[in-house]
Design a protein around this nucleic acid. Sequence first.
DNA 1: GTCTATACCGTGATAGAC
DNA 2: GTCTATCACGGTATAGAC
Lengths: 203, 203
Amino acid sequence: MADTSVSTRAERSARTRAAILEAARQVFAERGFEKATIRTVAERAGCDPSLVMQHFGNKQKLFEAASQVNLDVAEVSAGPADELSERLVRGVFERMDARPDAIASTLRSMLTHDASAKEVLKLFNLLPGIGQEDEQPDEQQALRGRLIGALTLGTAVTRYVLKFAEVEQASVDDLVECLQPAIEALLTPPNGQPISGQPTRQP
Amino acid sequence: MADTSVSTRAERSARTRAAILEAARQVFAERGFEKATIRTVAERAGCDPSLVMQHFGNKQKLFEAASQVNLDVAEVSAGPADELSERLVRGVFERMDARPDAIASTLRSMLTHDASAKEVLKLFNLLPGIGQEDEQPDEQQALRGRLIGALTLGTAVTRYVLKFAEVEQASVDDLVECLQPAIEALLTPPNGQPISGQPTRQP
DNA sequence: GTCTATACCGTGATAGAC
DNA sequence: GTCTATCACGGTATAGAC
């Protein structure tokens, strides 16, 4: 039983799988879905290209496994409404910071790869749900929600993909400080009170 | 001289060239640089692929010709400082609206194609120049400038590339109305007066 | 001179042999 | 688990047709 002296087959397989996944995250993050190649992933993982296929089936499935990121915006949105904009920014960027390669993979590919675009859209559809509880959702309110998403998306793209120094090196606190008033402004229609917040609810 | 009865060679050539250019704008806008193929462009232009090469040399040069868009931010920035944020939004989106395919080409490709990324960066470097005249450009101010760019970029991406209905169908006036206060908020440091504006200049 | 047909060469995903 | 073959695709060069 010499083959169990260091590690079992299952252990070796699991380690290979993890190496592939990590390599995939890097390559997809750097090059996006289309320009990333199975060969490059395999090379960086130190294994054969065919092994990658064996573990993950095809390129698309590998991508899905590698770019998995748990934003769970429901969790982010929970809490007192008057701190919503701060929690939103903090929650989103803390979660993205935890897996920069995974989010970069999705973001980098979103404009040229349908599956990634849909993934981003899912995030979008969570974000602007805020503040649409009681008031009738008129057109401008929907637009405002989308623009909050646009600001978030633009910031994420410049931070994780384009890597503009100022945005990349900023702390989450910095981002919160700068973005929070802007999001408040987007939440507030010209006429008066913010569309979210709890002005209609008395203690 | 029967060959001049309908059109000269030069005229035919020019029309073919224009057809190629228009087809290229569409294809690049729809698919981005890498997924767009010379063959598809030629097909849509109703000519042979080699003809495309003859007119434009190579794919990259064709792309440059097709995605040319004149933002000329210097022009946009000129004027009284207290209306800057409005003029910024209006100027940028009016110019982009004039050539949606061209701007979409650049935007769609910016995350996977170096030349497009540089093009976008050029636009970025113009935008946040605002308000950096007299005050020492501290870090946070630089970040704020970039975030204005991020908001603009995110909005443009959702309008021209991802085509989210609310953002795509909004008029420039709608965008101005919603974005202007957000940009003001980004221009304003927490301590006090906005970093642009003309508080230091007396009449 | 303007356009077309075809060939070349590299690349990448995937399947099947070892 | 690995190596090799297959197949399709796309950018580009060349040769010739009108």
